[in-house]
Amino acid sequence: MSEILVLVDHVDGSVRKTTAELLTIARRLGTPSAVFIGSGADAAQAALAQYGAETVYVLDAPELSEFLVAPKAEALAQLVADKQPGAVLISSSAEGKEIAGRLAIKTESGVITDAVDVVAEGDGVKTTQSVFAGGFTVDATVTHGTPIVAVKPNSATPEEASGAATLEPVSVTVSDAAKGAKITDSKPREATGRPELTEAAIVVSGGRGTGGDFSQVEAFADSLGAAVGASRAAVDSGWYPHSFQVGQTGKTVSPQLYVANGISGAIQHRAGMQTSKTIVAVNKDPEAPIFELVDFGVVGDLKEVLPQATDEVTKRKG
């Protein structure tokens, strides 16, 4: 079986859930090896072993985090040239896609972004993408070079397996050309105490219909242990930070349950939530397009419906 490289998504060694998903997918394609860029590999080792990584290539040099993605792509390209893997899996975040783009040019390989599934096909891979705001599914393949696939979060349920996760330091050289874009300041996002939006099993979001007050949306989210999301109208009005925006130019979420409150259901919003398993909406306009998507809808004022629902959920949870 060929070796499949998985680029580890982590913050100082704390491995994000998407990496467990990628390792799970990689095991279907071949033998998974994790590529850990930056410091904190020791801390990450157990988590990588848990999801079946046999080898962990550790690429650690100050240049790799000081500069924007170019050095990471360069380091990864060196590893790809050396190991000749069957495929490279990267998480489909903004940064992940950029690394994928540069890597494709450097290694003369085809790239597929936003895959929701990857399976082995012949001696390559077959991917599935959900396109045009979830209106179509497309199966595609890479026909040249090493398949580089950026996979969307929540595309697989992480399955545990015990891998050796042997740490193997790899020395890389970073060219001056790759050091053109320097990160001069970085402010970590403040923790909300709620689950990460793209990883959450339940997302409760609010739109213009909140009128700027997200307290009922937040309270309902907390009763369900959910993440909070927002429409662009709510973000543009300054009611909620952009990092919580769901949709085409925000985050794509695919939770078990999505609850849209005071959101009309514009195509760009749908693009970010249409693949959710169960969809629920609260909206006072019975004609709102969001109702075309829902499994359950309440026509009503969210200011009345949400507090009552919150109380009822809390009561039922005891």
Partner: peptide
């Protein structure tokens, strides 16, 4: 000349409308 190839596409079946209640 593309290094990626679309094998097939399919329109996603529209979501079947669920239950809507009025508050």
């Amino acid at each position: 000349a593309a290094w990626t190839k679309v094998l097939s596409f399919a329109e996603r079946p529209p979501r079947t409308a669920g239950e809507i209640v009025t508050d």
